[in-house]
């Protein structure tokens, strides 16, 4: 039997999907054989939720606002973690390839860069779900607060923060390709640069005017404003959702372009075979 006959088709969406699944399988094997990695996924979201949950209980005893808007801090913590974990999910999966000096094999396989990007984002989604779902369920048990009570708006908030995290993660991957493992710590701290301007725990209106303008170009700001609107005013604001979706479309397009540009630059500079520990 010829090799061609032994190979399934290498073109088209079905072949692309198979290659993406192969990359996800690679990470599944990795996590299956490493309990510390699994633990790390759920550890921080759970810990954060517990701390902020107690803070919510304390504040509710002192402030009418927190009585009225039950769970606004817990929801903010969990949704911020979606954004953070989503970004980290992309960049850590990429870092796994750098740590194992495997990029040379990956990039001479039929896997295209776009498929690799898709596999990283898929893996990011899986990591976020593993991290956030247990913490959310624990919040129901500990504080009688269910983030799922937000209903359909929660899906919109989650999706927007997930996509924004992908964008940040992809830009970090590009920087890692260009600057190597010396830039590894960027994966951990990059996303925190936007935390003060995302109106996570406080409304946009508390910021100075000029800062509000900066905050307004972040999709996350519109998500957290929308979240407070749902929890405090019991209103779902479509305008904020549209803003977030439009900004995310621009961010993701730019991030994919940046990743591909850095990939090309790495090929021009001969960096792919040099990447490693």
């Amino acid at each position: 039997m010829s090799a061609d006959a032994k190979l399934a088709g290498t073109k088209g969406p079905a072949a692309a999907w198979r290659r993406m699944q192969a990359m996800v399988l690679r990470y599944v094997y990795l996590y299956r054989g490493s309990w510390p990695r699994i633990l790390e996924l759920a550890y921080w979201p759970t810990l954060q939720m517990i701390m902020w949950g107690f803070l919510t209980i304390f504040l509710a005893s002192k402030s009418g606002f927190f009585v009225q808007a039950a769970g606004v801090l817990i929801a903010a913590v969990l949704l911020w973690d979606v954004l953070f974990r989503s970004s980290l999910g992309v960049s850590l999966s990429f870092l796994e390839e750098m740590w194992s000096r495997n990029l040379g094999h990956i990039f001479v396989s039929p896997l295209r860069p776009g498929e690799f990007v898709a596999a990283l984002t898929l893996m990011s989604l899986i990591r976020v779900l593993i991290g956030i779902v247990p913490a959310s369920l624990l919040a129901i048990w500990l504080y009688a607060y269910s983030i799922f009570d937000m209903g359909l708006p929660l899906i919109a908030f989650f999706a927007n923060l997930q996509v924004m995290g992908w964008s940040f993660g992809l830009i970090v991957c590009g920087l890692l390709m260009r600057y190597g493992l010396g830039a590894e710590s960027i994966a951990w701290f990059a996303i925190f640069a936007i935390a003060p301007f995302s109106a996570i725990y406080y409304p946009l209106s508390v910021m100075p005017d000029w800062l509000q303008w900066i905050a307004g170009v972040l999709p996350s700001t519109h998500v957290f404003e929308g979240m407070r609107s749902v929890l405090v005013e019991k209103t779902f604001r479509t305008d904020l959702l549209i803003n977030a979706v439009a900004l995310n479309a621009a961010y993701l397009s730019a991030a994919v372009a940046v990743f591909l540009r850095f990939f090309r630059s790495a090929r021009e500079r001969g960096l792919i075979l040099q990447i490693g520990e």
Binding site: L7, R18, Y29, L30, S100, S109, P110
Partner: peptide, 27 residues
């Protein structure tokens, strides 16, 4: 190439399975 590794935490079989799927092997 001895200068490009396969993921060290994956078993030999797992590594080959990942690449077999990346190359689209039927069996």
């Amino acid at each position: 190439s001895p200068y490009v590794d396969l993921p060290k935490r994956l078993s030999a079989r797992e590594n080959l399975m990942v690449y077999a799927r990346l190359y689209g092997l039927r069996r």
